[in-house]
Amino acid sequence: MNRFLLPLSIFIVVLVFLGIGLKLNPREIPSPLVGKAAPDFSQPQLLEPTKVFSPADMKGKVWLLNFWASWCSGCKTEHPVLMDLAKSGEVPIYGMDYKDQRDEAMTWLSRWGNPYPVVGVDDAGRVGINYGVYGVPETYVIDKQGVIQYKQIGPLDPETVEKKIIPLVKQLEAQ
């Protein structure tokens, strides 16, 4: 090969990668937890503080775990999507109120509506760390064996719910 073509070839390779890079989101960090057992926890419930919420209660069900907070603007964007999904009855969405004030969280739910059958409270952000949460909202799809099958980083939108979440849930249900 002509050695004078070498710089051009290297440049073309770099250019192709830069082109692909334009379509990628460098801030989205895939979770190493997908395919692994959902970390256990047992947290007080938001609405009934004397009761606890634990993933062990969910064995045998396909469910979503949604980390949210009243201070999080992305959660407000996502909220109507969650309400619709909850109404459709396709899959139960359990909430985890992440590093939040209890009264503000309650006000938020009563004002905008509550899509969650149960909301856990993660005051110190420990559950969040165990789940590798780095920015709310984040949503996990957990299967009947308690294994995380999918992680959504950032707000869910109707398209993701339609094209990813619901088909995945159906497939997991069928197993």
Binding site: N2, F4, L5, P7, L8, F11, I12, L15
Partner: peptide
């Protein structure tokens, strides 16, 4: 790309 191509063409 253009200048490296020119280089590959003329440099030899």
């Amino acid at each position: 790309g253009g200048s490296l191509a020119l280089y590959a063409w003329r440099a030899p």
